[in-house]
Amino acid sequence: MKPKEIAPFQTLDPRHGLCPGCGSAIAMAHTLSIISRPLPSGRTRRVRAVVLPASCWSIGSGWNGESFLGVNLVNTPFIASSAVGEGISLMSKRQGRDEEDITMVWAGDGSSFDIGLGLLSGAASRNADILYVINDNQSYGNTGAQESGATPEGARTVTSPLGKSIPQKDIMGIMLAHSIPYYATAILSVPTLTDFYSKAQVAADMKGFRVLHLLSVCPPGWKSPTDASVDLAELAFSTRVFPLIEIAGDAVRLTKPKHEKPVEEYLKPQGRFAQLLASEERLAAFKATVEKRWRALCALEKSAEEHT
């Protein structure tokens, strides 16, 4: 990508209330910029609204009715964003503007994996016409990084001080079980930039229920240096801890790192993994989980290739 293609428009007002090094803030700026520019089909769509359930964005996206994101925002309770987004998109359809309008829901992992999972399932099964972004920082970030369904097994949080003792929920499996038209994981980092841009563009260009599952580095929750966020995001990709996959209908594409790196490189800068790193047994279990998931995704990709 050329630099001029990646520079985000000035969509994020500097008064936004998110933390230094916040992965969600930078991903929001890029995503809004990407989806408001001409899309692969050649058309340009407009964001009708971004729906925000309870999250860091509830307090960081504006004040007294002013939007710091340059687009209309609709704040909702924690549980409600998917169906609220669906309601907005139904009115676009009713008004004959659904080719032009994009309704985007930007929901955290707590909202998506846990409290809002029921309503998310409903909206997904109805193939609601929304771009649903799972902004996954693997904890309840806004309340101070408590354990969520997305927290990796072994990671320490304030409500799992000994490290999470149960497996991370497989949100990809859950979403794919709904036969949605598009699900992709994405990471905003230097080697994954093209991948990120392409996925956001494709998702924005489509209709129906599209999930963009973003890994968002959260320095306060992950106990990582604020200036290490982009590097950590890259390491999540190159260590295959957060695999990059795109599933559009029957097509499956796994984005493989050119140079794989040891899992420890991703874990070491993060305080939340300190106990895990101190235990050979737990580290081995964590690595085994990474390997198992990677093999399963490779098999999924291979099986999809064989069937097409």
């Binding site: 009708r48 609204a49 729906v51 609709v74 909702t76 549980i79 409600a80 998917s82 169906a83 609220v84 987004g85 669906e86 309601g87 907005i88 998109s89 139904l90 009115m91 676009s92 359809k93 009713r94 029921g118 309503l119 399932s121 409903g122 909206a123 099964s125 109805r126």
Partner: peptide, 24 residues
């Protein structure tokens, strides 16, 4: 009227919040 089978009364009222916020 667009009719939707929702997945709970919570989803139904959430859908209504969206529709009504969009002026419907």
């Amino acid at each position: 009227t667009i009719y939707r089978n929702t997945d709970s009364e919570l989803a139904s009222i959430a859908l209504g919040i969206g529709v009504s916020t969009a002026g419907g």
